[in-house]
Amino acid sequence: MIRDITLGQYYPADSVLHRLDPRTKFVGTLLFVISLFIFHTFPGYGAATVFLAGMIGLSKVPVSFMFRGLKAIFVILLLTVVFNMLLTPGQVIWQLGFLKITWEGLMQAGRMAIRLVYLVVGSSIMTLTTTPNQLTDGLENLMGPLNRIHVPVHEIAMMMSIALRFIPILMEETDKIMKAQMARGADFESGNIMQKAKNMIPLLVPLFVSAFRRANDLAMAMEARCYHGGEGRTQMKPLKYKGRDYAAYGILAGYLALGIAFRIWGI
């Protein structure tokens, strides 16, 4: 069962969004997030809704997947809405003791809720349509300029992709060690949190030891295959912008221009 956990939340499908260059999707998500803060009126949010709905339609990912991410931020969302409603000064609509809801507070709460929900759904579109590996590649490429200020971009990307490969292996190993310890009478279930944490020690120690051993082996295997950092390295699947990427950038530019226009004219 533990093997079935999928990494990230990639949803395999064949859509335009899936085929877009990861860099395009990353920049697009970033611009979408910025646009959410440029728009500050409801017609503006209407435009964002249309854009988001269009993207969801294009992605061919079931809508329920998009909203799954919201579960994680539900508490934050609730707190934001409640505090904004109660603490914004203005025209009072309803009052109970020291609690009062104002018209301005209601508007502000609505705005914040829309921003938060759209932010999560928007970035879900990216993670649902891009494999973790493509994401790593895209990030490495976009962060390339940081190399000049001596940020080891290639090394970080390599670490990320190795981590992605080893997570399922280590999961399986955790499962195995857990069963082996349980067979010898270890108890991982009962007791309070402190006891449970203490009971994890016989699981964590062998897991760490084996992780280090694997790391050592892998480093040797990489060296044996001539790995010597990013210098002089070529790529099997270099990222290349295609026609659809330019089209996507065009659409994004139009969308952002719309946001700025709304802001200037105060719609």
């Binding site: 590996n133 490969r165 292996i169 082996d217 892998l218 295997a221 990489m222 295959r225 390295r233 099997m236």
Partner: peptide
């Protein structure tokens, strides 16, 4: 397990030539 670097078979085979 400890010598395969790629997350897809073909990418792993390409690792040496890339280097």
């Amino acid at each position: 397990d400890n010598q395969i670097i790629g997350t897809v078979v073909e990418e792993d085979v390409g690792f040496g030539p890339e280097n």
